[in-house]
Amino acid sequence: MQDLLDTLEKVNQLALTQDEKASVQAYFERVAQDLPSFAEVDTQNVTPMVYVMPLSNVLREDESSQPFTRDDLQKGAPEAEDGYWEVPRLIE
C-alpha cells in the first residue's frame, strides 16, 4: 500500500504528509471493501457507457476567432514576461 501511494503521489505531482497518507489509505481500504461485489456484477455482454445522453456529431465549422488578448490571459500568471509564461529552465 505504501508503495502504491508513493507511486500515485509522484504521478499526481503531490507530496502528502503522514496524516494525509493515513486518510488516503483509509479511504482506499473502505472503497476496496465494496469491490468484491462490484467485481461480481456480470458485465460481459454490456458495452461501456461513457455518455449518459445519446448525442453524436457535435461539430463546429472551421472558423477562427481570437476574442481574448494575451495580456488578459496572463493577468493572473504567477510568472510571465514578454508574452511568455515562464518556468524554471527545463532539462531534457
Binding site: L8, E9, N12, Q13, S23, V24
Partner: peptide, 23 residues
Amino acid sequence: IYVKSRSEAFGTDVKTAILYGSH
C-alpha cells in the same frame, strides 16, 4: 512548482480523490 503548489493548495479530501482517480 508542481508538487509544492498542489500539495500546499489542495486539501486532504481533494488529494484523496486525485490519488484514487489516478489509481
